[in-house]
């Protein structure tokens, strides 16, 4: 089975978000980049599927050269090879069309994405100037866009996927519960926990990742449909009002009369 895993290169959630250049540029100082957490689940499941029934796992990222350490990490975790589409991921449509191009030429049996490009909630970020190089990601749309562009089914958020004889049995989370689905390969899935345990690269993985193939290809178009004009920060949070435990009941009065939320 040939599996494609699409990964994002995103600031760690613990990063403090601020902007520079008149709120048009992410302040990259102190920002730590990681593989998108949902993408990490997708990758881990892809490797498990490969270990169980053979095949290959290719990771793909649409990004500029600065995403390569993140791609190498995915190789260290166990992907066989990687493709980087050398372009700034300007908007979701652009990213999805570029991924679809690669998927069409290489015909994968399964395309795993993350449920959404997470902590950014729909905004992958390379800290570029807004305008030409804007950051216009949609949250949780990659799988649907990709599926539609490829004419394949798309399923998300996926909590479990098992494959036998070209048929996938899937557990999808729905509001308040779960749904059990069946679909024939190929299809696109947006993954989330507990699809697999996150994998941590070991020393051997890290060593072998250095020599695994990482192919850099150019995008086939530069068409986008959205652009970010500016960023804004929310107003600063007010200070917390503490209520002594002995008078806890007063909280309820405050919530009704002061905050007016109950």
């Amino acid at each position: 089975m040939k599996i494609l895993v699409c990964i994002t290169h995103v600031p760690d959630t613990t990063s403090k978000i601020s902007f520079t250049d008149n709120n048009t540029k992410l302040n990259k100082a102190g920002v730590q980049y990681i593989i998108g957490p949902y993408d990490d689940y997708a990758l881990a499941r892809a490797i498990e599927l490969k270990e169980a029934s053979g095949g290959t796992v290719t990771v793909l990222n649409v990004g500029e050269a600065d995403t390569e350490p993140t791609i190498r990490k995915a190789l260290a975790i166990g992907a066989d090879d990687a493709i980087r589409i050398n372009a700034y991921p300007e908007d979701a449509y652009f990213v999805a069309t570029q991924i679809a191009e690669v998927a069409r030429t290489n015909t994968y049996d399964l395309i795993l994405k993350g449920r959404e490009s997470i902590q950014l909630h729909g905004c992958q970020d390379h800290g570029q100037v807004v305008g030409r190089d804007s950051l216009a990601f949609t949250g949780g749309q990659g799988h649907g866009l990709g599926g539609e562009l490829l004419g394949s089914p798309s399923v998300s958020p996926v909590m479990q996927v098992d494959i036998t004889g070209g048929l996938a049995k899937i557990t999808r989370e729905i509001e308040g519960g779960k749904e059990y689905l069946e679909v024939k390969l190929p299809f696109v899935a947006g993954c989330q926990e507990p699809i697999a345990e996150w994998k941590i690269p070991n020393m051997r993985g890290i060593m072998s990742a250095r020599t695994k193939p990482l192919q850099v290809v150019n995008p086939t178009s530069n068409e986008t449909v959205t652009t970010v004009a500016q960023f804004e920060l929310p107003p600063p949070k007010g200070t917390v009002k503490m209520i002594p435990a002995e008078r806890a009941e007063e909280l309820i009065t405050l919530l009704r009369n002061e905050a007016k939320v109950i």
Binding site: T138, G144, E148
Partner: peptide, 24 residues
């Protein structure tokens, strides 16, 4: 509405219409 169904349907629709999609 932004929801798991909304995300899934909106994105496929956006690709069909070649429409720009703004989430959240």
């Amino acid at each position: 509405a932004k929801s798991s169904l909304g995300d899934a349907v909106a994105s496929r629709l956006a690709a069909k219409l070649k429409a720009g999609l703004a989430a959240n």
